[in-house]
Amino acid sequence: MTVVLKHSIASALVLAMCGIFFIESLSYPVTAARLPQILIVILALLAVLMLVESVVRQRKQNKLDEKTEDSGLVSKVQSTKEINEIEKKEPIKIKRVLIFGTMIALYIFLLETLGYFILTPLFTFGALMYLKATNIMMAIILAVGFTVVIYFLFSMLLNVPIPLGIFF
């Protein structure tokens, strides 16, 4: 994804939020609506500015690239900083992030029904195995171990509520 595209999407999202919030705020009493409306306007302006800024940066970047190609020089030093700001050094493993993210979301959305004791070891084990973090034995030990330790620390020692679910 190009830098400009990324920023366009972000700006669009922020602007959409501004729109929804602004319409919502129209029904509030004047005093309650004042500050939010000021902030919404500022936010919308900043979103536009951010897009403009990314376009300007991209152009600069392109020019720089052209120059490097034209002169054939490896004047990378100059542009390193800018590149670093735009691209991370290591490639992102998008698929891995998405799957791990889905696991987190599933964990959270099912926690209230299935409960802590069923889901926590399952999530920990699944995540460790998927990420190839440890071997299978270690994953089992960690999964069960953490479930028990956290339960004892939070629920028994500190008496803090834990989402136990419907079975407990």
Binding site: M103, L122, G126
Partner: peptide, 11 residues
């Protein structure tokens, strides 16, 4: 693929 099987059974 382990994951998929698990998800399926959950659904």
């Amino acid at each position: 693929m382990k994951i998929n099987a698990k998800k399926l059974s959950l659904t």
